[in-house]
Design a protein around this nucleic acid. Structure first.
Length: 743
DNA sequence: TTTTAGACCATTTTT
DNA sequence: TGGTCTAAAA
């Protein structure tokens, strides 16, 4: 790291572009500082400028700065923006995620942390597989205690900083079972030198508590600690921060209690309320000026979130334009909703806007399908955020497992994964035997394979297959020895047989998989180890590969091969946090979907849903559409829906209802408590060449009266879906049904 | 051993 | 509806 002279530098550029509140935060002399940053108030900006201020105005060494975020993307962005602002890079500064930084500590102090030097990281999928295996050996009833639930239990305990030994139990079935599994799981992890995501944080915390001299070293080094998205910290993360900053270090946390949407995975909104009492001399700065949205949108968000209790309170304002009203559309069903959105989108694009400036947001991933189909139908390019991250994909994980075995032959997780992928005749029975051998000899699966072959414990056919596997790995290992990382990856992809394996299954999916494998090679060639200080230069080829594998576990690769085409953005509300768009569609505003039925029976859950809605609304800069459907097909069958309570929590004067063709009054709106379909006249799309339109009440000779929900085709060939009062929904062919149109 | 057919059951997601 | 998982057939 080069020495930097700051002599009498002009520092005004750091403050000049900021408003008063932002400036107060950036130049604060306080020992600890809580910045309550409303949506669109320049939160990241404040963090970036704060660091610049420390470095330049207060002559703080970059080595003394630690900045923590939740995602790698946020960390990269922060570092990038600091470098951009200061036109300089700062290698010695630690900017990273909680997990990334904690992992770095564990790599440096593996001995003190009680880990083997070559420990490796278990991702969620690996973890689940391991738990399943454990449950099988413990003979746990999978029906009664699903592995998913056990995984959830273990992770939430770790989020709370609790190990199996620390957990009080009342000897009930549930806790006893969970603790047994937790213990067995911990043992398995220890034996295999594996740590899961929660363990990374837990170990890093314990590392400090158990090794005061190490803690002291970091406390002395990191005099300035900054935290982004503080409302998302869980118990262990906050504890870790308190330990680090406990020695009088300067701590600045930035967050927004109204945007806390990760309670369900351990985030504690209480941390932000607790901060003041944990750091009694702390200052609070509120960033309340919003630079993003029109005042109509902002007011809608403010009014909505005001329904939550126990907020720290903020009053977001803007001096920007009032903007258009929020448009509300009542669709008949999810198809109608999708059609409507696509129509609006096309209008908007005809006005010369860019597709990537528009986003369609939904509560749950299942909703994307209908929207995709509608977009596909008109040929509008779109991109879906979320879904399977690059490094989590099946084919990638398989390829990585081969690479893992090059580094460490005793990586059981990897062996389990690929021992029969591609299929080479090693089936469940053979693998069981091998596991058995491993348990008896207390050795790794790899060794057990060797043993099983040598001792002829297997049928000759199985034995040959296992031997072939062992030789394949050994040969590849030898061949890869002298190669560069990306050459290793290319070699593995080529010689593992994975490509042929996927080619065989054929289809569109298979092609995508093969492309991904090629993409992996690209990813390795552009990899340069970000986690290394210059002190640690002796990076041998194999540790370089190990570093890549770590990075692959820790960074799921949210840059999933960015395509350059301008496309409409589709994502869940959760993944929309932190983003902004000119035009936003907030879809599926129905009771049971949003707020989701799993979260609406308790106040905490409901309030989190409301915050989610708040996040959604505040993504919009210029124009917001909200929509809901009167009926929605979910998991195959049709449900009738009531409009979300969140709709009526937005003041009427900010909303304009969009009606296609017919205007009707809103007597059936939520205030009445959801008189769903019933006494309403026709509205919306007509079934072509018929007297029927969606939403219309009709009578059938046999089934009685009902409401038209949907249609296919046209004229006498058309089929219509009718929800009958007596017998539920049915599809009928127009020419046979003889439907009578009711007024 | 591998493939396939039926059973089951479904928020939200980062690391 | 579609993805995952177990149990029976090729």
């Amino acid at each position: 790291m080069e020495k930097i002279e700051y002599a009498a530098m002009d520092v005004s550029y750091i403050l000049d572009s900021l408003n008063e509140q932002q400036r107060n935060a950036v130049a604060s002399p306080a020992q600890s500082l809580l910045v309550l940053a409303g949506a669109g108030s320049g939160k990241t900006r404040v963090l970036v400028h704060r660091i610049a201020w420390l470095l330049q105005a207060e002559h703080v060494s970059p080595f003394s700065v630690l900045a923590v975020t939740f995602t790698n993307k946020a960390a990269r962005e922060m570092r990038g923006r600091i470098e951009e602002l200061m036109e300089q890079s700062f290698g010695g500064m630690w900017v990273g995620t909680f997990h990334g930084l904690a992992h770095r500590l564990l790599r440096s102090h593996w001995q003190e942390a009680g880990l083997p030097e070559d420990f490796h990281i278990l991702d969620a999928d690996d973890q689940l597989r391991l738990i399943k295996r454990i449950n099988r050996t413990l003979q746990i009833d999978e029906e009664r205690w699903p592995a998913k639930q056990c995984q959830w239990y273990i992770n939430s305990q770790k989020d709370e900083g609790l190990r199996a030994d620390n957990i009080e139990h009342f000897d009930d079935d549930y806790t006893r079972t969970m603790l047994d599994i937790y213990k067995a799981y911990e043992e398995a992890c220890d034996r295999g030198g594996m740590i899961d995501f929660g363990e990374i944080l837990l170990r890093a915390h314990e590392l400090w508590l158990k090794n005061p001299q190490i803690l002291q070293h970091y406390q002395q080094r990191f005099q300035y600690v900054l935290v982004d998205e503080f409302q998302d910290t869980n118990t262990i993360q906050y504890a870790w921060l308190r330990v680090l900053a406990g020695a009088g270090n300067q701590l600045m946390v930035v967050g927004d209690d109204d945007q806390s949407i990760y309670g369900w995975r351990g985030a504690r909104i209480e941390n932000i309320q607790q901060f003041g009492s944990d750091f009694p001399d702390s200052d609070i700065v509120r960033l309340e000026q919003n630079y993003r949205s029109t005042s109509n949108i902002l007011n809608a968000a403010n009014k909505l979130i005001a329904h939550n209790q126990g907020r720290l309170g903020k009053n977001l304002w803007t001096d920007g334009a009032e903007g258009e009203l929020i448009s509300l559309y009542e669709a008949f069903n999810e198809q109608d909703e999708a059609r409507f959105i696509v129509d609006r989108l096309q209008d908007w694009l005809n006005g010369g806007n860019r597709r990537s400036d528009a986003a369609i947001l939904y509560r749950s991933n299942a909703q994307s399908r209908e929207l995709e189909e509608a977009l596909l139908r008109v040929g509008m390019p779109y991109r879906i955020y979320g879904g399977h991250r690059f490094y989590e994909r099946l084919e990638i994980k398989n390829a990585l497992s081969y690479l893992r075995l090059l580094v460490n032959r005793h990586d059981d997780t990897a062996v389990e994964r690929i021992i029969n992928v591609p299929t080479r005749g090693i089936g469940g029975k053979t693998i069981d035997t091998i596991r058995q051998v491993a348990r008896e000899h207390n050795c790794s699966l790899w060794q057990a394979c060797v043993e099983a072959v040598n001792q002829t414990l297997l049928s000759s056919r199985a034995s040959n297959a296992v031997l072939a596997f062992l030789q394949l790995i050994d040969e590849m290992s030898k061949a890869c020895e002298p190669l560069e990382l990306h050459e290793k990856a290319a070699y593995i992809v080529k010689h593992s047989g994975l490509v042929q394996h996927h080619e065989k299954e054929g289809g569109e999916k298979a092609r995508a998989r093969i492309e991904n494998l090629e993409e992996l090679i690209t990813a390795t060639s552009s990899f340069d180890d970000p986690g290394m200080d210059e002190e640690e230069i002796d990076v041998s080829a194999s540790t370089f590969l190990a570093a890549f594998l770590d990075q692959a576990s820790l960074d799921a690769g949210d840059t999933q091969a960015e395509e350059s085409e301008d496309a409409v953005q589709l994502m869940t509300l959760h993944s929309a946090k932190g983003l902004e768009f000119q035009l936003v569609f907030l879809t599926g505003l129905e009771e049971g979907l949003f707020p989701h039925k799993m979260s609406m029976d308790n106040l905490a859950g409901l309030e989190e849903e409301r915050r989610l809605c708040y996040v959604g609304i505040t993504r919009a800069k210029n124009k917001l559409y909200m929509s809901y459907a009167e009926s929605r097909r979910m998991h195959g069958d049709v449900n009738l829906c009531r409009p979300s309570r969140f709709i009526k929590e937005v003041p009427n004067e900010l909303v304009e209802e969009v009606r296609l063709k017919t205007t009707i009054n809103r007597s059936h709106m939520p205030s009445r408590g959801g008189v769903a379909l019933g006494h309403k006249s026709a509205h919306g799309a007509e079934v072509p060449e018929t007297q029927i339109s969606l939403g219309q009440r009709v009578a059938h000779g046999k089934f009685g009266e009902g409401v038209v929900l949907n249609y296919e085709g046209q004229g006498s060939n058309a089929r219509v879906q009718v929800n009958f009062d007596a017998v539920g929904s049915k599809w009928l062919v127009m020419s046979y049904a003889k439907l009578e149109v009711l007024g």
